[in-house]
Design a binder for these strands. Sequence first.
DNA 1: AACGTTACTGGAAACGTTTCCAAAAATATG
DNA 2: CATATTTTTGGAAACGTTTCCAGTAACGTT
Lengths: 343, 343
Amino acid sequence: MATIKDIASYCNVAVSTVSRVLNNHPDVSADTREKVLEAARRLHYVPNNSARDLALQQTDSIGLVVRGAENPFFMPIIRAVEKSCEEKGYTMVLHQISADADEVEEGARLVTSKRLKGLILLGGRYDYTHEDASAFGAPFVCCTYTNHFGDLDLDAYSSVSIDDKAEACRAVKMLIDKGHTKIAILLDAARDRSVSERRFRGYCEALAEAGIPLDEGLVCETVDDDMESALERIESLIVERPDITAIFAITDTLAIAAMKAVDNAGRSIPSDISIISIGGIAMSLCTTPTLTTLAQPQALIGEKAVEILVDVLEKAAPNSHIRLETTLRPGGTVGQVHSGDLA
Amino acid sequence: MATIKDIASYCNVAVSTVSRVLNNHPDVSADTREKVLEAARRLHYVPNNSARDLALQQTDSIGLVVRGAENPFFMPIIRAVEKSCEEKGYTMVLHQISADADEVEEGARLVTSKRLKGLILLGGRYDYTHEDASAFGAPFVCCTYTNHFGDLDLDAYSSVSIDDKAEACRAVKMLIDKGHTKIAILLDAARDRSVSERRFRGYCEALAEAGIPLDEGLVCETVDDDMESALERIESLIVERPDITAIFAITDTLAIAAMKAVDNAGRSIPSDISIISIGGIAMSLCTTPTLTTLAQPQALIGEKAVEILVDVLEKAAPNSHIRLETTLRPGGTVGQVHSGDLA
DNA sequence: AACGTTACTGGAAACGTTTCCAAAAATATG
DNA sequence: CATATTTTTGGAAACGTTTCCAGTAACGTT
């Protein structure tokens, strides 16, 4: 493995000169530059990142902390993050955390132990503070809607996300427009300060606008990272509340579990029960009937997250918050409310 | 950020002593050890990996190269790999490659540029050579069945996998036992030298044993990383060959696409067409009917892969090949062949 | 021709570890 | 108690970069 020193002695120049060439520093003559590059090629020089990082007191690693990565929804995002990192010369370090882990604590540990330059958070909260930001000790981007909250420290970090509340509201309204009033909502994990909570708010808003009172019995919380338990939980909801005519699932995964649960209960979709969700995973194209979902631009989320982070890192750009939109992917799971239920 | 030097001056000992304590070297007295550890705690010492790696001329990174990571099947494996790496003090570096990329080339590039200590391959070929192994420049474990081929260099690398051929044979036999003879097979990507090919061989073997001739018209190759095109491809198969009564899909994802295709064609499962696959993804519990599949021990694959690799790395253990078994997850997609089709 | 610029280059220190070797201290042996 | 042995410690070099500072060379300007 050739080193800079090897190149230097090979070319009869100083180590510092070689380093300058390799880093495209301006103060070096054209012919020595050529000579050095030629030698580097000839000797198959590969830079030693450890040494570089040590000298520069840095790393080229960006951490991707994801909660609930078994959710297929995240995979395209992870892929996009990795690809974008690669393109910009960074290394993505993936770290999955369990549902009940504290992402700030884990993230902070990661940043110091792996000397990460920045962090991207998937599936975390929406309300980080300056305190959290300084706990991390590195800039971070969270992929959860964070804007428009008066009490948040929006300049402490960046975010890339859809407007969870608005999109949820949109989804539920589509059900209401079809005449549904008994609309259940499927939430994952703790509702508190998460995507779950924002979408729940959207659900509430849509109901409120339509003058439908919130029925706590229609609110169903499950644990997302376990399909079986989710299924169980939804099944009992459907049995307990036979008056349900529609379900809004906050993720495709939950929607798919719900479809199964509905089927298990001997009801059919969409004639008995309509289902809509937010997500856009590939698998939802293959349910029967095809799942009606508000599809998020998954790859774009990943790309934008890296873009923002790198700007903050390299250009000292201010933190920013990007809002993306979903696109309705019409399927066959939403129908007019059954006439018998209207009575 | 406290360094070893800080600890040394704080304790009035030499830098080398501190290093020894931190690395659990034996030659250090109990009380200095205690004193140093106390100081380390007090000063919030975090080791600098770059420096460590530089001195040791190594990295603690293990590369996970995965082809087709959009397949939800891989996610639990990825997670297990990350977890195991963490536990053993390594960092997993995930790298996704496209369907047509050469994993040896990509892997080799990765090993030098990121100075990886070892490699784990997901979704690659089954027939690596000594040449490939030395191209990598680091030990590697592939998660594809590799054993029992006379012409392979089995001591050049390790593997962890189910016996693809045997398991495929088992699956197809289950269909044959139900009276099916017109059994289609769904393969992803290029059949050549991949999991796909091994499972195809199992399919052939089962047919041969039952005296059923291979019908090339029942062999359907798709591209796995695109649900839509897979769906399309399978739909036309079903239309072209209305005599099909059963489908063996080599992955759950393909099976789910097939279920949709069958439904689109107005046929029903399992009364018209039976489906079985190899996989075990969580989502397959939520299809209607529930997918009958031979479930792989996903987490175990990841754990074992890391275990083997670390043994090779740390204890210079010889390369080894681990075979795991699937467990039948009975669903509702396999039924007796329809009497009308028996004629 | 002397000088001041500018363009380029080399030397050396620094980054935070590990590890070899030698020295010092502690302990055992006669 | 002197010596031999073992245990524990310190000093210094090394890992491969980057970068600051000083120095040389080339060049134009008066």
